[in-house]
Amino acid sequence: MNTPHSTNPDCRAVRQALEDRFGAAVPPALAGERERHLAGCAECRAYRASLQRLQEGLRTLPAPDPGPRYWANVLPAVRSRLDRRRETGAGRRVWIPAAAVAIVAGLLLWATPQRLSQPGLEAGGVEQYGYLDLPDYNRLARVGGAEVLMDSLLEPAEREFVMGLSGVLDLSTDPVDRLSEMDEQAVETILQKLKEQSVIQS
């Protein structure tokens, strides 16, 4: 298998070095000893070949280009948005989305790797940042639907809290959009709850 994971420290070092160079227009040569390792290690050569295939695939992805009319319109659009903000005064409207983002970040912190590395759940796809990776989410959801997903991710007390929160936020629509419609007092209450639960730090 062309896997980056190997128990051999030389293999690991070589594969990391290959990944460091990934994407460079002219990849710098590996150090002499690593080149020698590659020459003698079929698995590392296979890994290098698979990275080359990945790179070839990535090169075929089209670059985003919205065309000349788009570029000509950026500045007027920015200017008119600036003018509109000046007229309405942006202070209050900026504050609520910021709070919404804080709540979103807090909610995401729930999906910590520790919770996912319970028996039967693969931790491999989950990141150090605490985001729930989509394949893991799908795997969990497939097994038992959203209920199982909740049970797997949350402690009972947290689960209850989320259920309570979902009553506040009406998660059947869109939590973020709903949040941006709420008044400051309601957002403040939720923020306070999240702080009490140590879901958000500040």
């Binding site: 983002v101 979103v104 970040a105 909610l107 995401l108 999906a111 985001y131 729930l132 989509l134 989410y137 979902s166 998660l171 869109d174 939590p175 973020v176």
Partner: peptide, 9 residues
């Protein structure tokens, strides 16, 4: 992140 939250919820 908002998109991911939507997917989760």
């Amino acid at each position: 992140r908002r998109r991911q939250l939507r997917r989760i919820l």
